[in-house]
């Protein structure tokens, strides 16, 4: 009798632990914390790898390996009307980053296609002439880790030496005012 009760307690304790860990991971990234470990699919084109400062080879990479001081991450989907409408604004953000010598190479931008296959990511990239890397997340694996946020969602992380990172921006919603968004990111990073 004691053995069965003890067994039940152990099973319940184990399951509560598993659920607690899962719940902790399913919260949207909070400012001041580190982004959870996510494995991003390595871009198959050399231009994207060069932009991110990644070597060729390897199936996945982590945020900490990107050569940048700050990484802006757009969580989007080709099936999301707000993301579609916001695509020109995000393209303009990329243009501002690449045309400002103070930011080029230091602040970089990627998109993660939540629930989007490689084909769907490529379709969106072509449709909106997206010049920055878009990473597929076909099975929602990354999307689950970062709290199943609605789209579009923007996260900015400061990448420190040694590949550690700190979330400095985390918000739901389209960019709309690109200059204001970029100014906020720059000020946040400068004040840290």
């Amino acid at each position: 009798m004691f053995g069965k009760t003890s067994g039940l307690m152990v099973v319940i304790l184990f399951l509560f632990t598993v659920i607690a860990v899962a719940a902790a991971e399913s919260i949207p990234p909070k400012v001041g914390t580190a982004l959870p470990d996510i494995d991003l699919l390595m871009p198959d084109n050399s231009a994207d790898r060069k932009y991110l400062g990644l070597p060729s080879g390897g199936k996945t990479f982590q945020v900490g390996r990107i050569k940048a001081k700050v990484l802006i991450i757009q969580i989007y989907s080709m099936y999301c009307p707000y993301c579609q409408a916001d695509a020109p604004n995000v393209n303009r953000l990329y243009g501002l980053l690449e045309s400002n010598p103070a930011l080029t190479g230091k602040v970089k931008l990627i998109g993660i296609g939540a629930g989007n296959t490689s084909f769907e990511v490529a379709t969106y990239k072509k449709k909106y002439s997206v010049a920055f890397p878009l990473i597929p997340d076909a099975d929602f694996k990354i999307h689950k880790i970062i709290g199943e946020v609605r789209t579009p969602y923007f996260i900015a992380v400061k990448i420190t030496d040694g590949g550690r990172n700190e979330v400095v921006y985390s918000r739901l919603g389209a960019l709309e005012d690109v200059e204001q968004f970029l100014g906020q990111i720059v000020r946040t990073v400068q004040s840290n």
Binding site: K4, I12, Y82, C83, G115, A174
Partner: peptide
Amino acid sequence: MKIKAVLLIFIICFFAGNACAASAA
């Protein structure tokens, strides 16, 4: 038997639900 039932309920609850990136729209 009870242990199996409890285990089954937890597994069902844990994995229930479907993933979807619902648009903010």
